[in-house]
Amino acid sequence: MSTAFAEAERDARGLTDIVEILTGGTHPADHVHEAVVTVMGEAGFDLSGNVPREIATEELESCDYVATMGCSTLELDADASEVDVRDWALADPDGRPLDEVREIRDEVRARVSALFDEIEREVLPSA
């Protein structure tokens, strides 16, 4: 969910040449949960062909911002202190009713938008 919203925010704000988005999990599922596919489809995103992937610590340490969803086992090197880690502590949508997954989706969308407000101020100081 967060990647779909982040890519949309990046594109809508004209930051495609400035912001690179890496995605993955420390212990990814083997598929995108059906409820997530459903509620993201309602929001205009087709995640049906997406496959979660593992992301390496080295990739994360190369980032300016890292957002975790609350189920991460993320351990960054102390030398990577310039990485701004945000633990959003969101509920896992797996097995939840669609109404709860919609609430999680909406929270993810709001947090991604707020993070992009910060990024935009940093990379476009006049914004």
Rank of each mutant, 00 (worst) to 15 (best):
M69C: 08
E75L: 12
I119T: 03
D77G: 10
T68M: 13
L22G: 10
C63T: 02
S81Q: 00
I18Q: 12
R96H: 04
E122R: 12
R86H: 10
I21M: 01
R10C: 02
S2W: 02
M69V: 05
H27Q: 15
S113M: 10
V108R: 08
A89I: 01
E20G: 10
N50S: 14
V123E: 09
F45W: 11
H33M: 08
A6G: 03
S48I: 12
A78Q: 09
R102Y: 00
H31V: 05
L60A: 09
L90Q: 06
M1L: 06
L74H: 14
A8E: 12
T57H: 12
R102S: 00
A56L: 05
G14M: 02
I18K: 13
L76F: 04
A67P: 01
I21Y: 01
V108D: 06
A8G: 00
L22F: 08
L22N: 08
T73K: 14
L47G: 11
L47Y: 05
C71R: 15
S48A: 15
S126F: 11
E107M: 04
D77E: 09
R121M: 11
R109Q: 15
R86D: 02
D87Q: 03
V123Q: 07
D106T: 09
A8W: 07
D79M: 02
D92V: 06
E20M: 02
L115M: 15
S113D: 13
L98W: 00
L60N: 01
D99W: 07
V108P: 01
D11M: 07
E34G: 08
M40F: 02
S72K: 11
M69T: 15
D92M: 07
A6V: 00
E42T: 07
G70C: 14
E7P: 00
S2N: 00
M40P: 04
V37R: 10
L76T: 08
E118L: 11
D30W: 03
T23D: 14
V85W: 04
P125Y: 07
F45C: 12
D11I: 02
T38W: 01
R96A: 06
E61A: 13
R96Q: 13
T26H: 13
A127H: 13
A67W: 08
P52E: 12
L74P: 06
P125S: 09
E120R: 12
R121T: 13
D46Q: 13
E120A: 13
A78W: 01
E9L: 01
I21W: 03
W88F: 01
D79F: 09
E75F: 00
E61N: 09
L90Y: 08
E100C: 05
L90W: 08
A91D: 14
D94L: 10
T38H: 06
D17H: 12
D99S: 12
H31K: 14
I21L: 07
V66C: 13
E58V: 06
L90V: 07
V51D: 10
I55R: 11
R109Y: 05
A110V: 07
D79T: 09
E20P: 00
D79E: 09
E9S: 03
V32E: 11
E58H: 10
R109V: 00
F5E: 04
P125C: 07
L47H: 04
G14S: 04
R53V: 14
G41C: 12
E100Y: 04
E103F: 00
F5Q: 04
S48Y: 10
V51R: 14
A43N: 13
